[in-house]
């Protein structure tokens, strides 16, 4: 497709200042020169371990944080150069689903009291009565029936699975084009997780949204991407190290970090998981964000590291339909 992607992240960097009261101030680079595109009605599963910067990147794409350098283009326009009205229009088009559904809603308001005002304020519906009808439709769509029952309930009177459905309904209620799902199903029980992902993809078809699906769980990322459409991007210490269509990153990992991860993850198959060798690593410890290694950030742990890896930051380069940031990627292709 030659058309402009919905969201374009260009060379974005975000630093936070840590310390100051008892220790000297230090800049922590949570997101480091990241570039990424998300097409219309397409998905990116952003996978990484805690502290790798995936949530920060998500917030940057929503305009909740301002990048120190680089640009976020939404429908071709830099979101930080938009006029006030255009910016609020953007915010309406870009929504977020948080990890914990219970802390996402005001506990002393009923579901209706929480979900109706945005609809009226954004002129989706003329009045409260129309909002009630619209919300009834939405709740039915996410499988909460009869909807009247749920609209008048308080969050504390619902299960985690039901709350997550409410939050999904709220996220699409203003018909956004882009939704960041930040560990949106991680809090749910194993038996409910797939159902929530299926529902997200169903809503995608109806509302034509694109998702940035942020997770630490490669299994659920794979399910999401194979059932939907899009790519998986692996993040390590603030940078994207590898990205590819479908589950190619999982099936044929190229970057040493991704390769190590794939052999380290336990799988629910006793014979298979016990037969997989321990990954060879030079160091087990993840470097602290305050002292990110020079050159390739993975080099102190990488079993294949050479001199250049300490000195030069590897670029994210294209291999067929894959992007890999490794000086020796050629060696690992195939």
């Amino acid at each position: 497709m030659s058309e402009e992607p919905l969201l374009k992240i260009i060379n974005v960097t975000k630093e936070f200042v840590k310390g100051g009261l008892f220790s000297s101030k230090k800049a922590v680079r949570a997101v480091d020169s990241v570039s990424l595109e998300i097409g219309m009605v397409e998905n990116v599963a952003l996978v990484g371990e805690s502290g790798c910067g995936k949530s920060t990147l998500g917030k940057l794409t929503l305009g909740l944080l301002k990048p120190d350098s680089g640009q976020i283009l939404f429908e071709g326009r830099d979101i930080w150069t938009l006029k006030k009205e255009e910016f609020s229009n953007f915010r309406r088009n870009a929504q977020i689903i948080h990890q914990d559904p219970y802390t996402s809603l005001n506990p002393v308001r009923t579901i209706f009291q929480s979900l109706a005002p945005p609809l009226i304020r954004n002129k989706e519906v003329p009045d409260s009565k129309a909002a009630y009808e619209r919300l009834k439709e939405l709740l039915t769509m996410v499988g909460l029936t009869p909807p009247e029952d749920f609209l008048n309930r308080y969050p504390a009177r619902m299960s985690g699975g039901q709350m997550q459905r409410i939050i999904l309904a709220r996220a699409v209620s203003l018909r956004p084009k882009y939704v960041v799902a930040d560990e949106a199903v991680s809090m749910l029980d194993a038996s409910l997780r797939l159902g929530a992902v299926d529902l997200m993809l169903e809503l995608q078809k109806k509302f034509r949204v694109s998702y940035l699906f942020i997770t630490h769980d490669l299994g659920i990322a794979r399910y999401f991407i194979l059932k939907g459409r899009g790519k998986i991007a692996m993040m390590y210490l603030g940078s994207i190290v590898e990205a590819g269509e479908g589950d190619s990153v999982i099936q044929r990992p190229i970057h040493p970090y991704t390769r190590v991860m794939m052999t380290a993850i336990s799988v629910p198959d006793p014979k298979l998981t016990r037969s997989r060798p321990l990954p060879s690593l030079r160091s087990l410890d993840v470097p602290r964000l305050e002292q990110v290694p020079s050159g390739c950030k993975f080099h102190p742990r990488c079993p294949y590291a050479e001199k250049i890896c300490e000195e030069k930051v590897p670029e994210l380069r294209a291999f067929d339909s894959r992007l890999v940031a490794c000086h020796f990627a050629e060696r690992f292709v195939n």
Partner: peptide, 17 residues
Amino acid sequence: PSIVGSIDELKPLPGPL
């Protein structure tokens, strides 16, 4: 879901706990 195996065999469990 896991990083191995077919996703076609996966099926969500209906109903709440």
